[in-house]
């Protein structure tokens, strides 16, 4: 079929398919998008679902199993687990966005410069990137989080500073690809300043690859944040899914009161899976092969 197409007369209607057309026909990608939208709505409308659980709850309702009143049951303090999970979504999304921002701020310039200036500068920068990539990440994050002090901004900073290498690698690969193209050569011959070439001509080419990597990074960031707050180094003033798990483990009710540990875990899983599916969909939509007529 593909080979026959090659000999067909191309009519006006045979334009390549658009990004959105391919994306919305990719079932997993759409599932991921729906999941992400649900999480965002949940985070925005958290105050409407109920107040943030604080302090000590009702002592007559400690460790209640899930019921119509408490959808996900209550924890050892008598606080509603459903509300904790809902308010935890806020933390997770805020945290993920901050991590992405930090790693783009570091990773994209490093990748662009490493790709553009090849030779020594590039090799040095990629050496640093590889160093960060091979380091055992979680122990380092835990140590930095412990030293900087527990707050959501610090945790985001730590995770962001340690997860930019993936963005840098992708950006560099795209930059090297773009460097071989003639319009970059033309721009160089015209004497356009390097910064303008990088920003106006190379970056737009790389941006689609960066977007895919960014959505994957959101998922990793949430996992890292859950790990850090599970170990008790997260922000004690806000709810996050890792913190609910930590509370369940500290009170020794990890297995007896299964609702305290099961529901936050399921939400972490769903969040990570939706972002991964979403990035699969974007990748499919940006792939020129899947956009062929």
């Amino acid at each position: 079929m593909k080979n026959e197409n090659r000999f067909m007369i191309i009519s006006q209607n045979d334009k390549p398919k658009g990004f959105f057309y391919v994306f919305f026909h990719h079932k997993l990608g759409v599932c991921g998008l729906c999941g992400i939208l649900l999480f965002i709505l949940m985070a925005i409308f958290a105050p409407m679902l109920g107040d943030m659980p604080q302090g000590y709850g009702d002592f007559s309702s400690v460790q209640l199993a899930p019921s119509a009143e408490h959808f996900f049951g209550t924890d050892a303090m008598g606080l509603d687990v459903f509300l904790q999970v809902v308010w935890g979504a806020r933390t997770s999304i805020r945290m993920g966005l901050m991590v992405v921002l930090y790693s783009i701020l570091i990773g994209v310039p490093v990748g662009l410069i490493a790709g553009f200036f090849g030779k020594k500068t590039g090799e040095f920068l990629m050496g640093v990137t590889d160093l960060f990539l091979t380091l055992p990440m979680l122990p380092l994050m835990i140590m930095m989080a412990a030293i900087l002090g527990p707050s959501i901004e610090n945790v985001a900073l730590v995770v962001g500073v340690l997860s930019w290498p993936r963005i840098a690698r992708v950006t560099r690969a795209a930059t090297l690809e773009a460097m071989g193209m003639q319009y970059i050569e033309a721009a160089k011959c015209l004497g356009i300043p390097t910064g303008v070439i990088l920003g106006k001509h190379v970056f737009p080419y790389a941006s689609s690859f960066i977007l895919v990597e960014t959505t994957m990074l959101m998922a990793t960031a949430i996992l890292a944040e859950s790990g850090i707050s599970f170990l008790g180094l997260g922000d004690p003033t806000v709810w996050s899914w890792g913190k609910i798990l930590q509370g369940a483990q500290q009170n020794g009710i990890f297995f007896q009161a299964w609702w305290c540990s099961l529901f936050p875990s399921i939400f972490i899983l769903l969040f990570v899976v939706s972002f991964n599916f979403f990035s699969l969909g974007i990748r499919e939509g940006l792939n020129p092969r899947s956009r062929e007529i």
Partner: peptide, 12 residues
């Protein structure tokens, strides 16, 4: 590359 991640996971 995964060795780093593995050690991190073993921590938890």
């Amino acid at each position: 590359f995964l060795m780093g991640t593995m050690i991190g996971g073993s921590l938890l």
